[in-house]
Amino acid sequence: MNPTIAAASVLAAALAVGLGAVGPGIGQGSAAGRAVEGIARQPEAEGKIRGTLLLSLAFMEALTIYGLVVALVLLFANPFV
């Protein structure tokens, strides 16, 4: 195993997870904040808002997961080793 490739893979994995978490984190925060605003404005619509929020949070979460998948590929199934 080439140590340079191993080191680069580990670094890249860390970057993939770390940077991949930034965008979805911002998005999820903003979505949750808006949802809370919506619930505060219209408490009777809470059930609907919560369902939509969870669904959209899961979609955003998937973006982080893509980063995680790339990281896992680099760590455990690296094609360059």
Partner: peptide
């Protein structure tokens, strides 16, 4: 990948 990644994660 969404499903796989979430469950594996």
């Amino acid at each position: 990948f969404r499903l796989f990644g979430n469950i594996l994660a």
